[in-house]
Simulated scan of single mutants.
Amino acid sequence: MTYPRNALENIMNVRSAFVAAPLLIFAYGAIRIVDGFDGEKGPGLAWTTGHLAFMAALVLFVPIFWEMRRRLERNALATTAVAAGFVGIACAFAQFAIDLVVGFSAADHAAMGPLFDQVKAVPGVSLAVYDGGPFLFYIAQFVLVTQLAARRQVRAWTPVLVLLDFTLPIIDRDLIPVGALLLLVSFVPMARRREEAAPRHALAHA
Rank of each mutant, 00 (worst) to 15 (best):
L45K: 07
F54S: 11
I64P: 00
L60V: 03
L52C: 10
R74P: 06
F61N: 09
D35V: 01
R74T: 11
F37R: 10
T49V: 14
P63V: 09
I33W: 06
T49W: 04
D38A: 15
R69E: 05
E40G: 03
R71W: 13
G39E: 13
A56R: 02
A53Q: 00
G39R: 11
L72T: 12
V34T: 10
L72W: 09
I64G: 05
A56K: 01
D35E: 15
R70M: 08
L58M: 11
A57P: 03
V34M: 13
R74W: 08
E40A: 13
A53L: 06
A46Y: 14
E67K: 08
H51W: 06
R69D: 01
F61H: 10
K41S: 12
I31M: 00
A57M: 12
F54W: 14
M55P: 08
P63I: 09
R70P: 00
T49C: 07
F65N: 04
G44S: 06
T48K: 00
G39L: 12
R71H: 10
F61T: 00
G39V: 10
M55W: 04
F65S: 02
A57K: 08
I31L: 12
A57D: 11
F65W: 07
E67D: 05
F37P: 01
R71V: 12
I33A: 08
P63S: 10
R71N: 11
G36N: 13
R71G: 12
I33R: 10
F37L: 14
R69W: 05
E73M: 07
I64R: 01
T49I: 11
F37Y: 14
I31H: 02
F61G: 06
F61L: 14
I31T: 02
M68F: 12
G39T: 15
T49K: 03
L45H: 12
M55V: 02
A56L: 13
D35A: 15
R32F: 15
L58D: 00
R70D: 05
E73S: 15
D35S: 13
L45T: 09
K41A: 13
V59P: 00
D35W: 03
A53P: 01
D35K: 00
I33Y: 06
P43Q: 07
E67F: 11
